[in-house]
Simulated scan of single mutants.
Amino acid sequence: MAVLLQRADDPSTDVLVPEFGAWGLSDGNRFGSASAWGNGAPSGYLGLLGFTTDGRTAGVDANLFTYTSLGTQTRLSVQLRYRPTISPDVYAIDVHVQRRTAATGTGGTLFEMSTGFDVPPDRGGNQTITWGASSGQAPAHVTYFGCNLDDGDPRTGPTTSVGLGTACAPGGLGTTVRLNLGALAIDERASFTLYVGVTRTSAAAHAALEDIDPALYALAEPTNPGGAVGIFAFSDLTHTTSTSAGNPT
């Protein structure tokens, strides 16, 4: 599922490139993703279970599965919950990944999100993208962050992150972040929140970041006068067990 944002003063204009967005995950053995350039359809071993929306919030339920002699088996369950935030300029995507059966591969559970910016009037990804961190360093569970677009496969792609405070400009294509959620035990759940947004000025973008207080963030700033500023950010990672996890709504 792709995230689309629009400018309040021009509701007909998309801010995020609709054909450039992807997310995916791997359990160390199987992999699955959904990308906008694949028309949002799941690929690999990702199955879409349900989608709900009321025009202001939305929910996506999916799973990472495999085939067995008895049929399909769910490896990981995935929930994405879209909601407004305290900042009117930013939307949140709460992500919950829970292991359902024992891992058969090696390594941790990996998650990737890639988002393309197309903030008018700087069309075609012609923005200056700069990464920053609230603590001055990237969280330990972040294995990669960059100014590129990827296909949602967290097992492949660039491995060397851009430096914090280093501007990818001009012509930054978008933002890609890759997370290691850890070697989850059965029924253990990893949770974090992604944020996407747009503001009219850099000052307003920094104010929005103060409101949501993310662990790592990127700003896509305009190269032409009058352009808007794109925001991509995410929170720290938390883990819960089956007894404390409950069912997110």
Rank of each mutant, 00 (worst) to 15 (best):
Tyr91Asp: 14
Asp54Asn: 13
Ile231Ala: 12
Arg155Gly: 05
Thr72Tyr: 08
Ala140Cys: 05
Val95Gly: 09
Pro214Ala: 05
Asp27Ser: 03
Ala228Arg: 11
Arg189Asp: 03
Arg178Leu: 13
Gly172Lys: 11
His96Asn: 13
Val3Phe: 00
Gln73Ile: 02
Val177Asp: 12
Arg123Thr: 07
Val142Trp: 07
Gly172Gln: 03
Ala169Leu: 05
Leu80Met: 03
Val90Cys: 04
Gly152Gln: 09
Ala183Phe: 11
Asp61His: 06
Gln6Asp: 11
Asn63Ser: 12
Ala204Met: 14
Ser77Glu: 10
Asn180Phe: 06
Ala204Pro: 08
Leu25Gly: 02
Gly246Ile: 10
Ala2Val: 10
Arg81Ala: 00
Leu80Thr: 03
Gly107Tyr: 12
Thr52Lys: 15
Gly136Phe: 04
Ala133Thr: 01
Ser87Trp: 00
Leu5Asn: 12
Gly132Leu: 11
Ala92Phe: 13
Leu80Ile: 04
Asn224Gly: 09
Arg200Lys: 12
Ser69Gln: 05
Gly136Gln: 13
Gly116Leu: 14
Asp153Cys: 08
Arg30Trp: 05
Gly152Ile: 08
Gly50Leu: 06
Asp187Gln: 15
Val142Lys: 07
Gly197Thr: 05
Arg155Tyr: 02
Phe192Arg: 00
Thr241Leu: 13
Gly174Met: 12
Gly47Asn: 14
Leu5Asp: 04
Pro88Trp: 01
Ala22Trp: 01
Val17His: 11
Thr101His: 00
Pro225Ala: 13
